[in-house]
Amino acid sequence: MTEVIRVEDFSFRYRDADRTTLKRVSFSVEQGSFFCIVGANGSGKSTLCNALVGLIPHYFVGKSKGSVSIEGRDVASSTIADLSRHVGLVFQNPFNQLSYTAGTVAEELAFGLGNHGVSRETMHAKVARVAALMHIEDLLDKNPLELSGGQVQRVALGSTLIMEPDILVLDECTAQLDPLGSEEIFDIVKRLNQKGITVVMVDHDMERVARCADQVMVLGAGRVRALGAPEEVFTDPEVEKWGIDIPDYVKLGRGLKDAGFDLSDLPVREDQAVRMIRETL
């Protein structure tokens, strides 16, 4: 399995900040995997996401040490525009992910392509393909500012995917959406991951993380506090002190263990929990 993201001893401090936001973060992500980052507010998750797409150091001002490389490219010596063809970012607020230059969703999707000088025929073809992928074909003629949050987030995801990156970084991208909008986005992300796109996702929904992640990384006060498979990370008692609300299934398992039942492993996912309950009964 090839490594598509490699972060080595990366530290970053925003200009005039009281403290360093990221301290000596090191990890790597393999191609096609589903990598989740969890942590309390202020632990540096968004900063790390920004560093993965090149916004740090090319947009945000501050001091950094260490290196981040995407598919072998050093982020500090590439440009954000170059990197956008390999890694895409979707973050929380949908309405801040519009260019505000487009009168229709189709123009919005094509915005990035226009900046890269892609021909009009190619643009139309790619817009149609991405719209089908995001289930927004019926919205192509509408004004993006008149859409709901969930719809705009799908447009934002589409605008990112139209550049055909191999890696997708999602920074709490469903936090501001209603449950339906949230599910729609997440279904698309899962399908993309199954097709081979590497996903790096920051999320607060631990059950979802436990269900989908191949690897989970816990960030606490800017440092990596835990890194491994969900089963290892969520059952580690140290992890909770970093402000992580572990999946209910783990709590359930612990409760049963404390009550005297003999369990081999603590469950982190629904299917494991069901199996555990069957075994104990």
């Binding site: 200009r15 360093t20 001091k63 950094s64 040490k65």
Partner: peptide
């Protein structure tokens, strides 16, 4: 500010 920004608290 550059000096003050140094990552000395790592």
């Amino acid at each position: 500010q550059d000096d003050l920004d140094d990552l000395d608290d790592l």
